[in-house]
Amino acid sequence: MPDPVVLKSGAEPWGAKPRRALSRRNIVLYGTLLVAALYYLLPLYVMIVTSLKGMPEIRLGNIFSPPVEITFEPWAKAWATACTGLNCDGLSRGFWNSVRITVPSTLISILVASVNGYALANWRFKGAEVFFTILIVGAFIPYQVMIYPIVIVLREMGIYGTLTGLVIVHTIFGMPILTLLFRNYFASLPEELFKAARIDGAGFWQIYGRIMLPMSMPIFVVAMILQITGIWNDFLFGVVFTRPDTYPMTVQLNNIVNSVQGVKEYNVNMAATLLTGAVPLIVYFVSGRLFVRGIAAGAVKG
């Protein structure tokens, strides 16, 4: 027996409420997002188009217009022959310095911090939390406060101005965030696993190498992303702890662009800027979600 209301259902609301794709809400929502996205993309766009123009075109046109005549000359110059005031072999020297700094710094800092985080999470010993607290609070101390004592220590050790010294500095300052990251991650793994391994007779290093390490690949990748981008982008430590021939890329870039000698070549500057930003950008675009996870894990739980 049909219900009376069903009989007139043809004119009645049925199913999902019809919505226009261009509702006011959607226009405001996507409109705002698009405008914001344009603002964020604009500098990248400007960098790219500027780096592909010749200097005459730059002087005539505006910075937003696409290149009329595409030239890769600025890129070649930025890489190989741009002058920093000291030498004229371009960014390539800085690039290789940065590679020599970033690779060992990343590996050593992650190794030290992961073992440390594991010790803190699973092998708590008396006093560990005190040191850890100092470490975390220390992460908020401006680097400027600690820089000079480190200079003295490194000078005493005879490695001030060397890449080794800079690697040690990066390991030190990467420690708070990385230790926190690993400690929290290892603490989130089921404790039974650790207990079972201990009952099976595995020791400190065995549990780390055979159980924790294989289970924690994602967090190692997150830590690598954090460190590679962080160390590559560093400027302060580079300028303080290296000499001109071992300057990392960021320092060299700044010297090229802000060097007061000669005519400003904006296209070369932008090509150099893009070249320096390329490594972290590639890491960012490739890692995507893990990058987000890294900053969320490192920041929110901190």
Partner: peptide, 17 residues
């Protein structure tokens, strides 16, 4: 939640939308 199809009546009033 929005249904894909069908109707909901509460006290004989069509409240689907």
């Amino acid at each position: 939640l929005e249904p894909t199809g069908g109707q909901i009546f509460i006290r004989d009033r069509n409240v689907t939308w």
